[in-house]
Computed example of a mutant assay.
Amino acid sequence: MKIILLSVGKINDAAYCNLINAYAKKIVHYIPFEMEIVPDIKNTKNLSEKDQRIFEGNQIRKTLQPNDYIVLLDEKGKQFSSPEFARFIEKKGLMGLKRLVFVVGGPYGFSEEVYGRANEKVSLSKMTFTHEMVRLVFIEQLYRAMTILNNEPYHHE
């Protein structure tokens, strides 16, 4: 199984990029992993929030493959402890999935079409985070899940 983190918009802050890339390099020692970016929309001042969600949703859907298992990182999703998230990843691996795709939406969330395409929703917290923070928290938790599943000492209970 390959895990993909699909996000809308690039990160301009070098500190976030460095941290995210450091975790990504660690994750690939355990499981195939890559990050994909859907470009930001330019000149959004004339677009409504709904129109932005639709445009971003179309871009997201273009990158997906027909058999992808889609998990939206969404505030209305299921919350896990770190060990529970590790078991969630483990179960997806046992399902024989080729690609497990976690999606970070744009500033206004996901279009109805993306919600309709999703298999599940996961929430990282009841709090709201910037998109940069979501990527960093998610990728750290994915690394933590890999160490939990491999009985390594990174996570302490």
Rank of each mutant, 00 (worst) to 15 (best):
K2W: 01
K2N: 14
I4Y: 04
L5N: 04
K10P: 02
K10W: 00
N12G: 15
D13V: 09
D13P: 01
D13Q: 13
A14K: 15
A15F: 09
C17L: 14
N18Y: 03
N18S: 14
L19K: 01
I20M: 00
A22Y: 12
Y23F: 13
A24G: 13
K25D: 12
K26W: 01
I27Q: 05
V28C: 10
H29T: 10
I31G: 01
P32Q: 08
M35N: 09
M35A: 10
E36F: 02
I37K: 05
P39Q: 10
D40W: 01
K42S: 11
K42R: 09
N43P: 00
T44A: 09
K45M: 06
L47G: 02
S48F: 05
I54D: 15
E56Q: 11
E56C: 10
G57L: 03
G57C: 01
N58P: 00
N58D: 14
I60R: 01
R61P: 00
K62M: 13
T63S: 13
T63A: 14
Q65I: 05
P66G: 09
N67E: 15
D68T: 09
D68N: 14
D68G: 10
Y69H: 14
V71K: 06
L72I: 07
L73Y: 02
L73H: 03
D74K: 06
E75Y: 00
F80P: 02
S81P: 03
S81W: 01
S82G: 04
S82P: 11
S82Y: 12
E84M: 10
E84R: 13
I89L: 15
E90Q: 14
E90T: 07
K91P: 00
K92F: 01
L94K: 15
M95C: 11
M95V: 04
K98Y: 09
R99F: 09
V101A: 07
F102Q: 11
V103T: 14
V104Y: 07
G106E: 12
P107L: 09
G109A: 08
S111K: 07
E112C: 04
Y115T: 03
Y115R: 05
G116S: 14
R117L: 07
R117H: 00
R117G: 00
N119W: 08
N119C: 12
K121M: 07
V122I: 15
S125T: 13
K126I: 02
M127F: 14
T128G: 11
F129T: 06
H131K: 12
E132T: 07
E132L: 05
E132A: 13
L136K: 08
V137N: 03
I139S: 08
I139K: 00
E140H: 00
E140C: 11
Q141T: 10
Y143R: 05
Y143C: 04
R144A: 01
R144T: 01
A145C: 06
A145F: 06
I148L: 06
L149H: 07
L149T: 06
P153E: 05
Y154H: 10
Y154T: 06
Y154E: 08
H155D: 09
H155E: 03
H155K: 05
H156N: 08
